[in-house]
Design a protein around this nucleic acid. Sequence first.
DNA 1: TTAAACTTTCAAAAATAAATGAAAGTTTAT
DNA 2: ATAAACTTTCATTTATTTTTGAAAGTTTAA
Lengths: 167, 167
Amino acid sequence: MEFKEAKNKFVQTWGALGSQWGINKTMAQIHALLMVSSEAVSMEDVMEELQISRGNASMNLRALMDWGIVYKEYKAGERREFFTAEKDLDELAVKIARERSKREIKPALKILKEVSSIKASDSIEEKHFIDQTTKLYDFVLKADNVLDKITEYKDNWLTKLVVKFMK
Amino acid sequence: MEFKEAKNKFVQTWGALGSQWGINKTMAQIHALLMVSSEAVSMEDVMEELQISRGNASMNLRALMDWGIVYKEYKAGERREFFTAEKDLDELAVKIARERSKREIKPALKILKEVSSIKASDSIEEKHFIDQTTKLYDFVLKADNVLDKITEYKDNWLTKLVVKFMK
DNA sequence: TTAAACTTTCAAAAATAAATGAAAGTTTAT
DNA sequence: ATAAACTTTCATTTATTTTTGAAAGTTTAA
């Protein structure tokens, strides 16, 4: 396999993986492309390499920046903007984890708290509902807290996790 | 908020959450419904409660069983099948983690190994590609191994993680 | 200012994913 | 064996998500 083929395969695979995780394909592909680019890449280049429209490139680059995993760069004497991806993997994972916690877990917790707080009637059905959603709330809260703690380490959190957990 | 409203809110929320995680909405809704049901539920009931077609119910129940988080139950003297969800949250999380590892992480690792193994030319571009994909491979492999180890505990893995990590 | 060079927005179109429902398949009781 | 009771399959339809591209917006240089 030669370089161009490998690069393409990587971008495609990362894109497919993205869509299994609720991130759209193009967004994941752009991220993949930037990850393996040694130089900052212009929007024009992204469009060209992935064969996508200007609007698509613009919107997905913006979304990646909102996630904090892609940065704008300005080159001296160049008018157009260039983009680079967060390349440190610990940092990348931490940012993704924090963002998903904020966007998905926290709102879900709020709902779980709400629905588990209804006053119980005598029916087994309702008792079970309250019991199960309460357990779920506790579980998700605990998991979210662990995630928080882990990502606090920032650098080498994975290594630290290995050390703490494997021994 | 009264029971019916709370139940509905829970099912809807779980469904929305599912789609952000690559699971289809109905599948997540069925799972939610079964999770909070004290009794095993028939396909007919699922169709009725979620207002979905027979085919849809059948296919998604099957998918949930493939994931190992929903079980068929047979009631004496009843011809039709009933379904229950895995209600133990530790067990549920372990099954989901293992299945996603098998379906998504393992295949991704295979590709990462492949593309990071191309022979390097002298260009900075290619060197960077190999370097970055190799790092990614190592990182994902390490993460997958930690996941493996954690889920080996099965019961109370989360509690154990809290204990090990918070101290 | 003006205009060139660039980016963003968003309504419409295209692509993709999910749901339907009727026919085919299966199981069980008689 | 037959038929009733139930489940599964899958071609077609429907709904959702993503992409396009042209117009509007912004920035910079002169």
